[in-house]
Amino acid sequence: MSLAIFDLDNTLIADDSDFLWGQFLVDRGIVDKDQYEQANKKFYEDYKHGTLDIVEFLHFSLAPLAQYDAEQLYRWRAEFVETLIEPIMLEAAQALVEKHRAAGDTLLVITATNRFVTEPIVKLYGIDNLLATTPEFIDGRYTGKFNGTPCFQQGKVAQLNDWLANSTETLAGSWFYSDSHNDLPLLSLVDKPVAVDPDEKLREVAQKANWPIISLRK
């Protein structure tokens, strides 16, 4: 039995949930279309190029949560998951998760997208363990701020190490599945890194390191 770690966006699902949530807010008129949509696209391009300022992005992406009460946000989130996420869930990804579950492995998703967006998505795959940036929640409302270390690049390693320190799990025999070069710090840490439908930079690194390269899209 080992630890099987999965990235979420463009790994277990066929798109980026953070970007899609922003587009959902735009399409529903919840945020200003021109200003928010342009910034959302720019941040996503920065992410793909490895130049994202994660703190700046989190201030941007979490700000709408502070503008509405939690129950309204949860209703919008349920609609978002049903209409935009369920159609991009991947049968091959679910099969991979079930393969590790059947082997007795501990399942963990670690994602740069915040917990508010990702928690219900991860539950759709039947995975109980999630590491993600946690939006601050005080007196029944989101504040637009976040707690702790952003779960991005080296921050994923930091969050994982904290989680391991408070569990009985180890990295012996561990797996990590990811599509993004932003995850190279964590891919380099586990025993069995796997590039999943990788971006160009990750594919190049994986080929040089002889890491497995797989697709969950076919």
Rank of each mutant, 00 (worst) to 15 (best):
L8E: 03
T51A: 09
P198W: 08
L62G: 11
V97T: 13
R77W: 06
Q23I: 13
Q207A: 10
L184T: 13
N129T: 09
F152A: 00
D105K: 12
S180R: 10
L189N: 15
N10H: 12
A92I: 04
A63T: 08
Q94I: 02
L65Y: 08
N10L: 10
Q153Y: 09
D7T: 07
S188N: 14
M89Y: 05
V194K: 09
Q153P: 05
I110Y: 00
H49Q: 15
Y177S: 01
S180G: 05
V117E: 01
A78E: 13
K208T: 08
D15N: 13
L12Q: 07
L73K: 12
Y125R: 09
S17N: 01
S167P: 06
S178D: 00
K33G: 05
G104S: 02
C151E: 03
A103G: 08
R141D: 11
A112E: 02
L187K: 10
A158M: 14
L107G: 03
K99R: 15
A103I: 10
I30K: 05
N210H: 15
V122W: 12
K99V: 13
P193H: 12
G22T: 11
G148Q: 11
N161W: 05
L84Q: 13
A172P: 03
I213Y: 01
L65F: 08
R28W: 12
Y74R: 15
E45T: 12
D128M: 14
N182I: 09
Y142S: 09
L25G: 05
R115T: 06
A165S: 15
V190A: 02
L8Q: 06
D18G: 10
A93R: 02
D34L: 01
R28E: 13
P135K: 11
L124W: 01
Q94V: 02
L130F: 07
D7S: 00
E71V: 11
Q67H: 09
F152T: 04
M1S: 10
L216K: 01
G126F: 04
E82N: 13
A165R: 15
P198I: 09
D32P: 08
L20E: 07
F146N: 06
D183K: 03
L73M: 09
Q35W: 09
D15K: 12
T111P: 00
A66Y: 05
A209W: 06
P212Q: 07
Q159P: 03
R141C: 14
D46S: 05
Q159N: 15
D18K: 04
K201A: 12
P87R: 01
